[in-house]
Design a protein around this nucleic acid. Structure first.
Length: 543
DNA sequence: CGGTTTTGACCTGCGC
DNA sequence: GCGCAGGTCAAAACCG
């Protein structure tokens, strides 16, 4: 997801680390406190002779030294507390400031909207939590439970987590990320993790835990492999049954011990479709350009596990069931896993582009089908996702990330209006129900792989756009304005820029259509932001 | 020269 | 046990 938020992850991790450091400081303090009684005990021992007075003097000196140390530590403790308070105050002030700004933007906004904004902020926090960040002081037990639950899911997540060099912290991100060589002693090895993790009870019945979850990405691609930003080395090729096109086997070469593998094969029916199957988890930091795909595949794998762990089975055929049970699952997805285990089955989710297939023999596989072009918006051509039509009244094209090419931007909605979108490497979940009044529609996006603040930018952007008195059809035609507004926000946040650049790079690549199977695959990271968004080089141009 | 690709051999799991 | 298919290994060839 792993996943903008990456920076956030590391930041939070840093906080946790700092806090631990202060904790250890407290520990030192207690150690110092314990020392005087020891000396006191010493002092009570009756000693005779001239050496006794000398010893007493030394003890008094020690006592004074210890007291002085204690004072120093207390002072430092106070300083740290003040520092923490300052940070907290700054945070609150910033929050209020954002709140005020949004209120100014919508002077007639109701209390409901304010609540929505607070929810956005809350959910932004939740996002960071779901990505493995533990707040030092959970607000309540419910939140802590959610964290634990989500952590559990993440520990079950198998696919292609991304790791960032800055995330060497004690955040739980490390738990779901595979160990780097330096900390491998503390965390089980990849192979062990893949085979010895304790699956959810429901999952035990679903599949052999030894089989790793795979994420299959179907995409139209001219190049021999999908440009996902990682470095791969081909180690084998095989003609598989039922497909004249050979299947190529690649191994991740970013780190020598990285267990991640991928299989690449052209679709027999349509040679332009490239089927890339990822398996395993990176045990190293990924290049920026690789994080988007890693986040997405990880999110997809997590969805499989999350969905399956909710154990909503149905014997209904997918076609009919997709409209009935989607709301029961976390993400509004329907998971239909085999209970007979005899024949290969594919279980379609709310969106035809996302499916989970599984056989009795093979690995459970999440398939992301990026081959179908989903129209940006039009009530006439809007696809029916999960039995719900996107119409101009409930589907706002502006809420779709305009910066993402439509060809790879997927959107999932359930019958309960909880929408999920997979947009160029980032999975978004619209937790807020669509409002009938689109101008008051606030979507809080849970983006796996971005900073919470970016969610706010996104939401804020949506608000701005939604508050503008532009009919939707008209809004579609005012793309330059929207792009300008979007660019403005992008410029405001460099980390968002890099995240977005990574996402775009992973999808668009470098425009290089020549084969770049090995080291060339990460060439996308060389693409500069300015190449993607030339306007960002000059802020004034957008005003 | 080091890294990557190619390709035949080998291993493993599963169905019959 | 045998055959098949998927997956991996490793030596040779290739490439920058």
């Amino acid at each position: 997801m792993e996943f903008g938020s990456e920076r956030s992850d590391s930041d939070h991790g840093g906080e946790v680390k700092d806090e631990k450091r202060s904790d250890s400081g407290v520990g030192d303090e207690t150690a110092v406190i314990k020392e005087p009684p020891m000396t006191n005990t010493k002092r009570t021992i009756p000693e005779d002779g001239p050496s006794a007075s000398i010893n007493k003097k030394e003890e008094v000196d020690e006592l004074e030294n210890a007291k002085a140390k204690m004072r120093e530590i207390r002072e430092e403790n106070q300083r740290l507390k003040m520092c923490l308070n300052r940070v907290m105050n700054d945070y609150k002030t910033l929050q209020v400031h954002i709140h005020n700004i949004t209120q100014q933007e919508t002077p007639n906004s109701s209390d409901k909207e304010n609540t929505n904004l607070q929810e956005i902020i809350k959910e932004s926090e939740l996002v960071s939590l779901s990505l493995g960040n533990f707040l030092s002081n959970p607000r309540n037990d419910e939140k802590a439970k959610t964290q634990m639950k989500e952590k559990e899911y993440e520990n079950l997540s198998l696919g292609l987590e991304c790791k960032f060099e800055t995330s060497k912290s004690t955040s739980t991100t490390e738990h779901l990320l595979k160990p780097s060589p330096e900390n491998s002693s503390e965390v089980p090895k990849e192979e062990e993790a893949g085979e010895t993790w304790t699956p959810h009870k429901d999952e035990v019945s679903l599949e052999n835990p030894a089989k790793k979850t795979r994420v299959c990405v179907r995409a139209r691609c001219d190049t021999p492999t999908l440009n996902d930003g990682c470095q791969w080395r081909k180690y084998g090729q095989k003609i598989s049954k039922g497909n004249p096109c050979p299947r190529a086997y690649y191994r991740c070469t970013v780190a020598p011990s990285c267990p991640v593998r991928k299989q690449v094969q052209r679709c027999a029916q349509d040679m332009s479709i490239l089927i890339t199957t990822y398996e395993g988890t990176h045990n190293h930091s990924l290049p920026l350009s690789a994080t988007a795909m890693a986040s997405t595949t990880s999110a997809a794998a997590s969805m499989l596990l999350t969905g399956s762990s909710t154990s909503h089975y149905s014997s209904m055929p997918p076609s009919s069931a997709t409209t009935t049970t989607s709301s029961n699952l976390h993400h509004g997805l329907n998971l239909y896993l085999p209970n007979d285990g005899s024949k290969p089955k594919q279980f379609y989710l709310s969106h035809p582009a996302l499916s989970i297939s599984s056989t009795s023999q093979s690995h459970p596989t999440v398939t992301l089908d990026l081959t179908s072009n989903i129209p940006l918006s039009s009530s006439s051509s809007a696809p029916n996702f999960g039995g719900r039509l996107f119409t101009s009244s409930n589907y706002n094209p502006i809420t779709r990330p305009l910066l993402y090419p439509s060809s790879t931007s997927l959107n999932f909605t359930s019958s309960e209006s909880n929408a999920m979108s997979w947009s160029n490497g980032f999975l978004s979940h619209n937790a807020q129900p669509y409002s009938n009044n689109n101008n008051r529609n606030i979507l809080s996006n849970i983006n796996l792989g971005r900073q919470p603040m970016e969610n706010m930018y996104h939401s804020y952007m949506q608000r701005n756009n939604n508050n503008a008195p532009i009919p939707h059809q008209e809004a579609q035609h005012s793309m330059p304005d929207t792009i300008a507004a979007a660019t403005k926000f992008i410029i405001a946040d460099p980390s968002f820029q890099s995240s977005l650049a990574a996402a775009l790079t992973s999808i668009i690549g470098t425009g290089n259509t020549q084969g770049n199977q090995s080291g060339g695959e990460d060439s996308g990271k060389n693409k500069k932001w300015g190449d993607l968004f030339p306007s960002s080089s000059s802020r004034d141009n957008n005003n």
